[in-house]
């Protein structure tokens, strides 16, 4: 059975443990229905493609927590080099690639190489040691225990059913509140007021 975005993220929610989860773009339309933990950071407003970079920084700053970033294929294509950086600076980071082959929230236009790009090969070539690829929901669910066991970095490529008619999702709370909430959870001093 092909993987829907909801099914893909439900598996992540079941296995995330106390890791920080960073949904980006389309994942933000689903993740808050599955989780509202202080260690959720819905990265919006965002800079498209920066989810993996931000997640690496967070994983390096909080090595005891572990970080999961939920990124789309369009976003990852904007920052493919970040996979090389992640491989060069090992951390407990899980990159979950939600590949629907399209720019979902702008009307479903195809991404370059949609359906043809081998992201597992790219991730391995970047030097990532643990790479997984799933195209059906049952196998993803059955394998998730292994995927989330052990240490990162880990790259998971999920081929999803495309959705139509999606609009830009809204994060569950304003960015300033999200940041303060996350930092309290992590025991980090609040931000200086700007």
């Amino acid at each position: 059975m092909p993987i829907s975005l909801s099914d893909a993220l439900a598996v992540v929610a079941d296995h995330r443990g106390d890791r920080i989860v960073i949904p980006t773009m389309g994942a933000i339309s689903v993740w808050p229905q599955l989780s509202d933990a202080p260690s959720d950071f819905c990265y919006m407003p965002s800079s498209m493609g920066q989810g993996t970079a931000l997640a690496l920084g967070l994983a390096l700053a909080q090595p005891q927590r572990g970080v999961i970033v939920l990124t789309g294929d369009g976003s990852l294509l904007m920052n493919l080099g970040s996979l090389v950086t992640i491989a060069q600076h090992p951390a407990d980071l899980w990159v979950i690639l939600l590949d629907n082959g399209q720019y979902e929230i702008t009307g479903g236009q195809p991404v370059p190489g949609g359906g043809r790009t081998d992201y597992a090969l790219i991730a391995r070539g970047a030097g990532l040691p643990r790479v997984y690829h799933f195209e059906d929901a049952d196998t993803w669910r059955q394998s998730a225990g292994e995927v989330f066991r052990g240490t990162g970095p880990v790259f998971v490529w999920l081929r999803l059913c495309p959705r139509q008619g999606q609009q830009t999702p809204k994060p569950p709370r304003p960015m300033a509140e999200q940041i303060d909430r996350l930092r309290r959870e992590l025991g980090v001093e609040p931000r200086a007021k700007s």
């Binding site: 920066q50 970079a53 931000l54 920084g57 967070l58 994983a59 970040s82 996350l182 980090v188 001093e189």
Partner: peptide, 26 residues
Amino acid sequence: PRLIRPTREGEAIGIAAGLMLGGAKP
């Protein structure tokens, strides 16, 4: 301080953001 080598500058700023969110000072 620990050296981080990103592949491009926009990525560098994203990494720095994550470090700051996590309490580091890049």
